[in-house]
Amino acid sequence: MGLEYVRISPGFEKYMPKDYVDLVQYGQFGRDIDVQQLGQFKELVEEHPMCAGCFMAYFIRVFYAALPKPEDTIVLGTAGCARLALSQAAVPFIYGNYGDTNAVASGLKRALSIRFPDKEKDVVVIAGDGGLIDIGFGMTMHSWFRREKFTTIMVDNEVYGNTGGQESGMSPKGVQLKMAPKGKQFEKINAVELAKTAGCVYVAKLSPTNPKRIAKTVKRAILAARHFGPTFIHAYTSCNIEYSIPTEKVLEDARKREKQDFGFYEWMTDEVKEFFEEMERKPEEVKA
């Protein structure tokens, strides 16, 4: 969009919906918001139909609060639960056909750098485990092999949540799901190692137990993609419906999985590491 598209022309405030006016007056556009300020500014995401207690919805909430430059960001999603919230945010959203997100994002990012050579436009894909590692596997891998400069975030609920509980490559071995009654026969795919092998320059894995850390990871993934190459975040975002987790225990489950197999993990190339070290030394100059 760019900031000039976000601002309301003088005199038109009273005709705009209140939520939009709030966004411009008390929101994130053109401002450096810290995720700890959640609850004290107007968030970019609006009401959406994701289930009560859904931690994928929680991750998406923190993701938007962490965007380094929301007015210059484009989010790409696809079929699956995440798009139910992604499509309700004040950040341009493109719906890629199921499995195609990383191909669409590749073209989009290249087109943006031709159309706006002097501006930084961030492209972020957020899609499910099915969308990225099963049906979109080829597109995901090839965008990484080609070193496309955008961020891919897998919101991994270890199931096809949106279509009622089929197993995915990311479901853990042995797990029984509504449409995998015999229990999954194969191991969970190691997406993080695949990303490193395929050429991502920044790779992280997390369970959403710490908003500050989620925000830092999202910012780093976006900045590294802006300057160096493909980046990947593997986030555990439970499906309380398909895994029958009582909603009040969703955070407890995220904390348990963090201890078990989703401990925070971050890897980056030496070049990216130097960039962040430099940025931390003089934050104003390299500021997002």
Binding site: Q36, Q40, E43, V45, E47, A52, A57, P211
Partner: peptide, 12 residues
């Protein structure tokens, strides 16, 4: 406030 899954809901 930092853990509510819903945006603009649990405020401070």
């Amino acid at each position: 406030v930092l853990f509510c899954p819903e945006p603009n809901t649990l405020m401070y």
